[in-house]
Write a protein that binds this DNA or RNA. Structure first.
Length: 875
RNA sequence: GCGGACGUGGCGGAACGGUAGACGCAAGGGACUUAAAAUCCCUUGGGAGCAAUCCCGUGUGGGUUCGAUUCCCACCGUCCGCACCA
């Protein structure tokens, strides 16, 4: 049988056009079927689609096509995270307006995405830089403000000196800007904040409900929110030592059990008491200035040793008026955690011990580890933070840590000084409010007008959107909005006096914090969301993206959805019911003799037996094969979509992306692997063509009986159907791929073993098997599937075909073959009837030669029969 | 330092506590061909044996179990996250 090679390029463009023309993937909000919302994290329009995108969108598309086939009304939209700094950099470097640059990139990337054959409803396409999008964002900003979820405050912020803008805490990775990589500086500025901390407890608690999220991400969010339960204790100050009659100092602690091990108190350099003391002590003032100069640059903090300065102020121990503790200003105390002050217990805290040892403050152990003799237990250079019983602690002695904590809290809560209790239980979070002000042009303008009389005033809703002016210049560093001649000069909406527009724009993470809600009805212009649509579609059933957003985007979106709920724009709090984080696409690196990286396309791999070496395709010079790394421009190990889709086709790329590696792990892109995928595309094409040539007509009646060959084929088909269905549901696409290979091989063998003209039963089975096979690989390779579907004579599209129906009784065998173990090692097989009773199986097993030999005439100690699984004979 | 994940052939990887290595890649052998490409068939964890078959094997060492890649403990290694959070 001769079949022409499958021409992927022709086929793919043809089917893409048909899908487009017939609007196959347009989704209606009034469709009565159950909904399923599958979403991949939308891309930043950088201008080039890379294989990482291919992997992300292929995974989503498999889910979308599968869910569509299984009867769901599937929402699978796409849009553009279109604001951001690269557009401004392009403006500076190439003198293109950010808007022009972004629009051009969107056009390019959209055409590239279309080449992949994704089943996307393009009618719902949105770009966050579109005023029709960001006007709603401005509206929600104002609503959040009214609801008390927005705050303008002066605080220490992270300043990225390269991007010339402020960054939120989440956007500082190891002390560097998440995008620029520049060491972040600390600055004090007045900024707009979203009060994400208002939801800290709920954001933490609700993580438990996110059952279809990876544990890893849930853990990372828990750690980021960082809840700790403790006691806020008010220490009285020794009046003789205070600069301005200050009388007390609040400290937060989670280890109030160790209060009798206290050796010192420490204040943040920003603490009011530190400043008060510094006003009278120039040396202290100098120390504080020194601390502030180092700022929050992470690199410096990491290396900095613990430094302190004795203020000469004394605090009085809450349980002993005669016990005075020295108060230091210390560089390691953070002003924005707890109360900006702490008590130091060197024996049971590594950091406190380092500090105490440096300044000769000594230590007293108050928790004795189990098995240690309290009389001999001493701490020298390793603090003990484990369990144990209290010692050297007066009324606490002998208690466990938990009992001691409770006792201390209980006593201090009851005790009062100045009509207030000395201590109160407090919960602190590591999570900080989300600073959203960015001193950049290409972002959503913050809809606020600053008036000298009225303060900050929201832009009236009728005047939204506040649009970006287009006549801006990027010839100097800084924010072009700020130096625009006219844009910022406006009248105050309240009093009408001359006022000034806010020139900061919003963090681009705001844009991506609600786009999933906008997709549910992107046409509505009077409000950010249509409540009926948003409530019907959300939550997103399956969200797919990179692990790099484990805290950033995913935490912000969880906050934003809560804020939308509070202001009536959404009816739920958790936006993503299921989350999947896919791994990266990685590739070998290649280096020429001169040390420069070489692109994969310029390298030829030569294999000799097990040995593998690389040479330059052009010159034949040897090339060094380097480690496998994340694709990056600098390592020149990227593979572009054009190179793949242009030749082997999108289906090949999609299939390879899903093969081999579990989707949550990194996948190594190899030329050989891609070749293998292409081979299989051709193989399937030949197989289906061959099957079509003998298959019964689509309307042929089902035979009453099937002879062995036909029955075997049917069983193979239904077994594959059962397994592929299960593994798609579990997002284990690499296992689906294996099942499809296996079934295709079995089908191929079945056809090859045919002798003479097949009979009607086999023809019918062949049609069934071919139909099942095509529908099984359709989610992964949709173009090839359409082509095959047409060859099988179906006039409709496989994209609209229902998932095959499983005939479960075909999976039931009349006999089962059980492995027989002797002492846990497999020695033989035994075939018994499906419903054979245990004694029957046991008898059959004991009659086996291998078993007789092993038992050597003696009776077995035990025979374990696990029905349908295994038999184990204990000799 | 704290927290987490992972460790299986030459490689990617599979295996509800039940036949370890499915499926793919690479490699070797063969068929077809003037030749190549393409395609098809066979072999492929290590070792012993003509063979039937047997022994050893899932990072290392213990444990639980009739049975452990899977569960528990310790150690080694790799990767990731957080990092003065009181």
């Amino acid at each position: 049988m001769t079949t022409e090679r499958y021409n992927a390029r022709d086929s793919e463009t043809r089917w893409q056009k048909i899908w487009d023309d017939r609007a196959v993937f347009a989704t209606r909000n009034d469709d009565p079927r159950p909904k399923y919302y599958v979403l991949e994290m939308f891309p930043y329009p950088s201008g080039k689609l890379h294989v990482g995108h291919v992997r992300n969108y292929t995974i989503g598309d498999v889910v979308a096509r599968y869910k569509r086939a299984t009867g769901f009304n599937v929402l699978h939209p796409m849009g553009w995270d279109a604001f951001g700094l690269p557009a401004e950099n392009a403006a500076i470097e190439r003198k293109v307006h950010p808007k022009t640059w972004t629009a051009g990139n969107i056009a390019i990337m959209k055409s590239q995405l279309k080449l992949m054959g994704l089943s996307i409803d393009w009618d719902r396409e949105i770009a966050t830089c579109d005023p029709n999008y960001y006007k709603h964002q401005q509206k929600m900003f104002l609503d959040f403000w009214r609801a008390g979820l927005v705050e303008r405050k002066n605080s220490k912020v992270n300043w990225d000196p390269v991007e010339q803008t402020v960054l939120a805490n989440e956007q500082v990775i190891e002390g560097r800007g998440w995008r620029s990589g520049a060491v972040v500086e600390s600055r004090e500025l007045t900024q707009w904040f979203f009060k994400i901390t208002a939801f800290a407890q709920d954001l933490l608690d609700s993580i438990d409900r996110l059952e279809r999220w990876p544990d890893k991400v849930r853990l990372m969010q828990r750690n980021w929110i960082g809840r700790s339960e403790g006691l806020l204790i008010r220490f009285a100050l020794d009046p003789a030592t205070t600069p301005n009659r200050e009388s007390e100092l609040d400290i937060f602690t989670t280890r109030h059990d160790t209060l009798f091990g206290a050796k010192f108190m420490a204040l943040s350099p920003d603490h009011p008491l530190a400043n008060a003391a510094a006003a009278k002590d120039p040396a202290l003032a100098k120390f504080i200035a020194e601390c502030k100069r180092h700022g929050t640059a992470q690199e410096i903090i990491d290396k900095a040793e613990k430094l302190g300065f004795d203020t000469a102020i004394k605090a009085i121990h809450p349980f002993d008026p005669a016990w005075k503790l020295p108060i230091y200003v210390a560089n390691f105390v953070l002003m924005d955690y707890g109360s900006g002050a702490l008590f130091g217990c060197p024996a049971h805290d590594a950091r406190d011990l380092e500090f105490a040892n440096k300044y000769g403050l000594g230590n007293v152990p108050v928790v004795c580890p189990p098995g240690q003799d309290p009389k001999t237990f001493v701490i020298t250079d390793t603090a003990y933070d484990g369990e144990g019983r209290m010692i050297n602690s007066r009324f606490l002695d002998g208690m466990t840590i938990a009992e001691a904590k409770e006792e201390v809290a209980h006593r201090l809560e009851k005790e009062s000084a100045g009509n207030r209790p000395v201590a109160q239980r407090q919960i602190n979070f590591r999570l900080r409010d989300w600073g959203i002000s960015r001193q950049r042009y290409w972002g959503c303008p913050i809809p606020v007008i600053h008036c000298e009389t009225c303060g900050p005033v929201g832009v009236p809703e009728a005047e939204l959107p506040v649009t970006l002016p287009e006549d801006v210049a990027f010839d100097r560093p800084g924010n072009p909005l700020d130096r625009h001649p006219t844009w910022k000069h406006v009248a105050c909406p309240k009093c009408g006096k001359p006022a000034r527009r806010e020139t900061d724009t919003m963090d681009t993470f705001v844009d991506s914090s609600w786009y999933f809600a906008r997709f549910t009805d992107p046409w509505i212009s009077i409000a950010p969301t249509d409540r009926a649509a948003v409530d019907a579609w959300l939550p997103v059933d399956q969200y797919i993206g990179g692990i790099e957003h484990a805290v950033l985007h995913l935490l912000y979106s969880r906050f934003f959805t809560r804020a939308m709920q509070a202001t009536g724009h959404a009816g739920l709090d958790e936006p993503f019911a299921g989350l999947f984080t896919q791994g990266m696409v990685v590739h070998e690196t290649y280096r020429a003799a001169d040390g420069n990286y070489v692109e994969p396309a310029e390298v030829r791999i030569e294999s000799q037996g097990e040995a593998r070496r690389a040479v330059s395709a052009a010159t034949g010079e040897p090339i060094e094969i380097g480690p496998i790394e994340k694709m990056s421009k600098s390592k020149r190990n990227t593979v572009g979509l054009d190179e793949i889709a242009g030749t082997a086709g999108a289906d090949t790329a999609r299939w390879f992306m899903l093969s081999d590696s579990p989707p949550d792990r990194d996948v190594i892109w190899t030329e050989e692997g891609a070749q293998g995928a292409l081979r299989f595309v051709q193989h399937l094409w030949r197989l289906i063509s061959d099957a079509a040539s003998i298959a019964a007509p689509a309307d042929a009646p089902r035979p009453a009986d099937f002879r062995p060959a036909a029955l075997a084929l049917r069983k193979a088909a239904h077994r594959a159907l059962a397994r592929v269905s299960e593994d798609i549901e579990r997002l284990r696409f690499h296992v689906c791929v294996a099942h499809i290979y296996k079934f295709a091989n079995a089908f191929q063998t079945s056809l090859a073993e045919l002798e003479g003209e097949p009979m009607a039963d086999y023809r019918w089975a062949a049609r069934e098997a071919a139909g099942i096979l095509v529908r099984l690989f359709h989610p992964m390779m949709p173009h090839l599937a359409e082509e095959c579907w047409a060859v099988l004579g179906y006039a409709d599209l496989v994209a609209k075909a229902p998932w095959p129906t499983l005939e479960a009784d075909l999976l039931q065998e009349n006999t089962v073959t059980l492995p027989v173990q002797i002492n846990g090692k497999k020695r033989a097989d035994v075939t018994v009837g499906r419903d054979a009773k245990n004694p029957e199986i046991e008898a059959a097993v004991l009659a086996l030669d291998a078993v007789k030999r092993a038992l050597d005439g003696k009776p077995p100690k035990k025979v374990i029969v696990v029905p349908h699984r295994i038999v184990n004979v204990v000799a």
